[in-house]
Design a protein around this nucleic acid. Structure first.
Length: 886
RNA sequence: GCCCGGAUGGUGGAAUUGGUAGACACGCAGGACUUAAAAUCCUGUGGCCGUAAGGCCGUGCGGGUUCAAGUCCCGCUCCGGGCACCA
């Protein structure tokens, strides 16, 4: 009676498929719905790796558990299938990406089914399906037709914009321009990252901090191209506030907060010496205005050119042109060494009338604030460094709040920078009626900001780091924009009834000239002539991969709907997603973009919730063992042999150190789920994925561990399928019944808290105990199988049948535990002396402290540890511990 | 540099959130079954001393709080992740 997992798993997977066991109905009569979502995968050519089934198994366990608890569960799967690899393959071979994509999806689907994951495959979606991206395009049109009303703090249709008369007076073109400048989606020249090797524009986020493209590792350069951008910063405050109500890991919320990067400060106006221009700067420290000794403009600042005096023309022009060519990354790369040039112009400090020289330096970024700063070297590290390098004055205006006298001296003498709190000095101007001397930072900021506002020289201002989202790519394999550029320069969106705008077939997948998308090659598709002879060109950019994944969770709700993005009633029933599980690599981008779109759709009344994902959980990465020699060189796994728990190089015999590293082809330590299923079965794969460690932890895959859980399943099978072990009559032994009910409780709470590793351990303990006892009742065996069902469903189904049931275990009720079995009436107290455990003492749980004290004192072992002394105090914690202090 | 995590036997990890450190599993050692091997089953397994009973030490390092610290506080070291001239 061997555990024939291959046969068992094949049969039950077929059963589930034929009977549509996991089909989800929109059962409005059941108010207890549970929407549990996995981050859908990009179906790569190499198939699943063991990281995918980790999260999928976790959600599958919860989904199966929730079904057993009577919830209506929505647990779907789909494919984020647009992407570069299929397109690059097309360039090389001419195979249409849709063919490659379909093959990869089939392979992923086959692999996922082989794991026994209970998805409703009737709800499968694919971002590359025109029936799906029709609605991605539809959402883009909604974004295009939405503006953000700051008064109401929400997005509204552009049809509700009230156009000021002075704009109307200027004519239709001015009106159009005015409206366009308010749309959430806009078309503009953008300085973008260009990857020569991929011939693609990259989003800021796709460029790594070393200046390389995350997809191909080649260095990117700057390029100016017409691009589509989304005004996500308008939603910065909403995106920030929304985080507070979400049950997400604190770390992820913090990352989003940092990404949004809210900062409060003030804008300050500086007039140039000649009074001809006004320069606006942004500062979080308006209180340090008295310490400003110069001003810096970003090289791209519109006034930079104008302010350069004739004498400075040559050096400044050269500096600016060099800085413009440099990428931001090179600029930040050289962060340690500051550079800049003086313009020769001066501005007047509004608080004291002092003349401040204006410099141009690339440590000031045009993209943040106003692209100009007031420099306060005494109280800002960057300015301090710059002033030091170029010999600019440093004026201390804060007596620092530090205990270190020496440091205080250095700061007061402008030898050291102090950005912390303290009391102001040299910060008054009687003629202008301003004095903050003696005040602290918080008050200083308030007083100066108020003064600036009163004098019209500034105002409070909140800034965000979050930038407009570059939303177009020069690719073929992405969603086409539903847009037409007319020959008169105007743009219009495609009528909704004409959606989807489908990708045309192509023979040449290479990019067009001047960085155009390959779609530019499809001339028949691109060129449009209307019935009245108006000519235009379709937008040839396509949307980034984020687009399809931004809203896929909504389409699962009503995937086949041809008339609407989804049925409103269904949306109200299923949303929000109750639990969303995926990797932390999507902490910022995917999750922020999704939230943004969702909020826009909410403002437009399309969705009923303000946030899409109520609870988020990030699974940790699964790594693998790797080997390293003494010199620290990594050795491929196929060159390593294990002897007596140590590792040696097969050829040189050198002893190697076992380390933990990412799975990689070069280290030959990649684990393929197919192989694991072949050797140990899907249930063993699932169980090991969960047993390896806490779901959120980074942990190494160990083949030996798979063997361990496999033998647990095999023992379970042999024990329960062995009829001599099952007692059809009689009641269970009370010790075992106690353990059984304890285990039900433990497994249930561990599932709810997503601590699957300890749940499995509890089931192992139970089985060990059952086997030790030899015979158990049919009820005990049945409950064990029910507990196992969410984790190892194939085996559980099989054993359920062996125990005489005819239906699938998937629809059985989760066993309740009986509290009366959990009550103990005595406890074996650990008795310690001065905190050191010395012996154990069995006492009734009803024992009062004096009774316990008596018992301890009268125990013969106590005398030994008192060593003739008297106890100072006896600590008694009921049901926990007794500690005698001597 | 800043912001988050983390460090427990030979290994992966448990520890009711301040109360018996090392559950469960792997590995290893010994034994049973076997002609033999695999599989399976049983026993042992943190380190040191001891035949044993037992004792001492022990959760990255150094302090502290407490009757009691893996858990809380202060100061470090190392590892992982994120951000990085954001004024």
């Amino acid at each position: 009676m061997d555990y024939n997992f291959k046969d068992i798993e094949r049969r039950w997977q077929e059963y589930w498929e034929v009977n549509k066991t996991f089909k989800t109905e929109d059962d409005y009569s059941n108010p207890r719905k549970y929407y549990i979502l996995d981050m859908f995968p990009y179906p790569s050519g190499s198939g699943l790796h063991v990281g995918h089934p980790e999260g999928y198994t976790a959600t599958d366990i919860i989904a199966r558990y929730k079904r057993m608890k009577g919830y209506n569960v929505l647990h779907p799967m789909g494919w984020d299938a647009f992407g570069l690899p299929a397109e690059q393959y097309a360039m090389k071979t001419g195979t249409h990406p849709s063919i490659t994509t379909a093959e990869n999806c089939s392979n992923f689907r086959r692999q996922i089914k082989a794991i026994g994951l209970g998805y409703d495959w009737d709800r499968e979606i694919n971002t590359t399906d025109p029936a799906y991206y029709k609605w991605t395009q539809w959402i883009f049109i909604q974004l295009y037709n939405t503006w953000f009303d700051h008064n109401e703090n929400r997005g509204r249709p552009v049809s509700e914009l009230s156009i000021p008369e002075e704009i109307t007076a200027k004519g239709a073109a001015a009106v159009q321009e005015w409206i366009d400048s308010r749309r959430l989606a806009y078309y503009d020249d953008a300085s973008v990252w260009w990857c020569k090797s991929c011939a693609i524009v990259c989003a800021n986020e796709e460029v790594l901090s070393d200046g390389t493209h995350e997809k191909c590792d080649n260095t990117v350069i700057r390029k100016n191209l017409k691009q589509w951008l989304l005004r996500i910063p308008l939603y910065a405050e909403r995106l920030l506030e929304g985080l507070d109500s979400l049950d997400w890991p604190e770390g992820i919320k913090e990352m989003q907060r940092n990404w949004i990067g809210r900062s409060e400060g003030a804008e300050v106006l500086f007039e140039t010496e000649d009074g001809k221009d006004t320069i606006k700067v942004y500062t979080t420290r308006p209180d340090t205005l008295f310490g400003a000794t110069y001003m810096v403009l970003a090289p791209e600042h519109p006034l930079a050119e104008r302010l350069i005096t004739p004498g400075m023309r040559e050096s400044a022009a050269e500096y600016i042109s060099k800085a413009m060519v440099k990428s931001d990354l090179v600029r930040t790369d050289l962060a340690r060494e500051k550079s800049g040039v003086p313009t020769g112009s001066f501005v007047i400090n509004p608080v004291n009338g002092k003349r401040l020289p204006v410099w141009i330096a690339d440590y000031v970024l045009m993209g943040y604030g106003t692209g100009a700063i007031m420099a306060v070297p005494a109280h800002d590290e960057r300015d301090f460094e710059f002033a030091g390098k170029f010999g600019l004055p440093v004026e201390c205006i804060i007596d620092p709040a530090t205990d270190c006298q020496e440091q205080r001296e250095r700061v007061l003498n402008a030898k050291e920078c102090w950005s912390g709190d303290g009391h102001y000095i040299n910060s008054s101007d009687s003629t202008r009626g301003i004095d903050i001397n003696g005040l602290g930072k918080a008050e200083g900021i308030e007083v100066i900001t108020r003064w600036l506002t009163e004098k019209g020289a500034g105002s409070p201002k909140t800034n965000y780091k979050l930038r407009d989202w570059l939303f177009s790519r020069q690719r073929y394999w992405g969603e086409p924009f539903p847009l037409i550029h007319w020959e008169d320069g105007t743009i219009s969106v495609v009528d909704e009834e004409d959606l989807p705008v489908e990708l045309p077939p192509l023979t040449n997948y290479h990019p067009g000239e001047k960085g155009e998308s390959p779609l530019a090659n499809a001339e028949e598709w691109v060129n449009i002539t209307t019935a009245d002879g108006r000519r235009g060109r379709r937008e040839t950019n396509t949307m980034p991969q984020w687009a399809g994944s931004c809203w896929y969770y909504l389409r699962y709700i009503d995937p086949g709907n041809e008339n609407a993005i989804f049925d409103q009633r269904k949306e109200r029933y299923w949303m929000p997603v109750d639990l969303y599980v995926g990797g932390a690599e999507h902490a910022v981008l995917h999750l922020l973009y999704s939230r943004f779109w969702h909020k826009v759709l909410y403002d437009l009344g399309v969705v009923s919730t303000d946030e899409p994902f109520k609870k988020l959980f990030n699974q940790g990465m699964i790594l693998a063992f790797a080997y390293e020699n003494r010199a620290g060189a990594k050795i491929a796994s196929d060159l390593v042999e294990e002897r007596e728990g140590k590792f040696y190089h097969k050829e040189s015999g050198e002893e190697l150190k076992q380390i933990v590293a990412k799975m990689s082809k070069s280290l030959k330590n990649v684990i393929n789920p197919d192989d694991v299923i072949e050797r140990y079965g899907a249930d063993s794969l699932r169980l090991y994925e969960m047993f390896i460690g806490p779901l959120e932890a980074t942990k190494p895959w160990d083949e030996k561990g798979v063997k361990g859980v496999h033998s647990f399943l095999a023992r379970g099978y042999r024990f329960i399928a062995g009829s001599e072990n099952i007692n059809n009559n009689g009641t269970e032994n009370s010790e075992l019944a106690k353990l059984l009910h304890k285990t039900i409780k433990k497994v249930e709470s561990d599932i709810v808290e997503m601590r699957f590793n300890t749940a499995i351990s509890a089931m192992m303990i139970l089985l060990n105990s059952m086997m030790k006892q030899g015979t158990v009742t049919r009820e005990t065996a049945s409950i064990f199988v029910l507990l196992l069902a969410p984790f190892a469903p194939h085996l559980a189904e099989e054993l359920w049948r062996v125990l005489g049931n005819n239906n699938t275990i998937s629809n059985e009720e989760w066993p309740p535990y009986d509290e009366s079995y959990l009550k103990e009436d005595s406890f074996e107290y650990p008795v310690s002396f001065n905190g050191k455990l010395r012996f154990r003492l069995e006492l009734p749980l009803s024992a009062t402290p004096p009774e316990a004290e008596n018992e301890v004192m009268s125990d013969e072992r106590t005398a030994r540890w008192l060593k003739g002394g008297k106890p100072k105090k006896i600590v008694f914690v009921k049901g926990r511990i007794i500690n005698v202090v001597v």
